[in-house]
Design a binder for these strands. Structure first.
Lengths: 238, 238
DNA sequence: GATACCATTTTGGGATACCAAGCTGGTATC
DNA sequence: GATACCAGCTTGGTATCCCAAAATGGTATC
């Protein structure tokens, strides 16, 4: 056994009412998104098995799930943590611009748009003392929760899945304070337009935000790809 | 053993070089999309196991895959063929309009749009003597292949997955000759606009086509839902 | 020293055994 | 007759075992 087995063997429930499969799925997702296992790294089912104290059946189920999320991919026979793919990041940006703009237009057409206040409060919960992980999480949740307001389950899932795929890359991005402040200002401006029901204005601002975000992200990773490779992270060029 | 086992036991390869999991996944998907198992029907892993002559390991893998496609869903402990959900169909229509329009606009911006000819040939391969299954398949592939031309993998997958979810409903739709002819005319008109590079015109026609298609689909299923329930198909109202 | 070849190990795919939870049908009690 | 209760069966969740293929490493040959 390597690391800390989370649940004991032979059908024993872990202290929470969570199945082994959920245990492995959630734990492995966190390890991948938190870069505890690097992009491009090989994964063996047996290693995951011992790492989480589960048997191969739930391990394989979790891998199949994570494969559909794009976090792991098949490597012939065998599994690999998906590399960071710059070309893919650009395509995802186009995709999320499409679905996020559609979602925000739907939201602007709603009579009751008061739910934007909850999102605004979420943004405001970040200040100078907030750890970087939290800024990162809130920056993603802003887009996910904004899409949820549309009420369209498929647009929401599309945004959530796209943000999941972008998560590691955004984490690796070299961001300065100024860029972060600008992003937050854009977030607020988007919410203001949604609150006012100005669909075109909200769409324009959101679109510009996403495109700018993409450009900074791809540029940052491209410039730093030597450093990323030095850390053992596979980065596929655009 | 019920039905016709496709592969023999104990690691024996079937005649094609296909894994058991792919066997089960593809076979079960065809059974669901072909309505050989009705929407809302309960599925047991053991039944699938004997139906396809595979053990539970590949069966579970296939079920997990089909769950992400929305073709089966969990029913507490246990599996169910996803019911036809009219509210979901309407949401999917909004979603696919969004992504298909975005894809076709990207395609119109390409220099080389000659690939539309292949799609046009596909449409023209259907005539009065073509079986209904083929019309159905080509009607879906038109949208999928059109999205593929955009070159954006995520828009393409979104359209493909949406069409998969719509497949059973479209098959159940009561369509007359006139509606089919109108759909084909709209398909040709969309292609003509794409060929000419007229993005706005193509988007307008595609959008109208999808909205009209949605209205006819939902109306048809809503009117016929008594008959569908009589066939044992679960239809959830909007 | 390079290379071809073979034994060993590793690994994913699949099959099966076992378990606990839940459903079912029957029975006993009132 | 209705209901509470219990035994047994079904079923998904999990662990484990087996297998074939691929990777690995060492050795013999040139």
């Amino acid at each position: 056994m390597v690391g800390e087995p989370i649940a004991s063997k032979n059908g024993q429930k872990s202290e929470t009412a969570m199945s082994q499969m959920q245990n492995v799925e959630i734990g492995l997702r966190e390890m991948i998104l938190g870069l505890e296992v690097g992009p491009g790294e090989r994964l063996t089912e047996r290693w995951i098995e011992s790492r989480f104290g589960a048997s191969r059946t739930p391990v394989r189920a979790a891998l199949l799930r994570l494969e559909t999320e794009g976090l792991v991919c098949r490597d012939g026979r065998g599994w690999t943590v998906s590399p960071i793919n710059l070309a893919e990041l650009e395509q995802i940006a186009v995709y999320r611009e499409t679905v996020e703009v559609a979602a925000v237009k739907l939201t602007c057409a709603l009579e009751d748009r008061s739910a934007v206040d909850v999102i605004e409060a979420m943004l405001d919960s970040c200040d100078a003392g907030t750890p970087r992980e939290e800024w990162h999480r809130v920056g993603m949740d802003f887009h996910i929760e904004l899409a949820r307001l549309s009420g369209n389950e498929f647009l929401f899932r599309a945004v959530r899945d796209a943000m999941t795929r972008l998560s590691r890359a955004r984490w690796l991005e070299v961001r300065d304070e100024a860029a972060l402040g600008r992003a937050w200002a854009e977030h607020h401006a988007i919410l203001a337009a949604v609150r006012a029901g100005e669909a075109d204005e909200a769409a324009r601002r959101l679109s510009a935000h996403i495109v700018g975000s993409r450009d900074r992200l791809v540029t940052s990773l491209h410039n730093d790809r030597r450093g990323l490779r030095a850390r053992g992270f596979a980065v596929v060029a655009a």
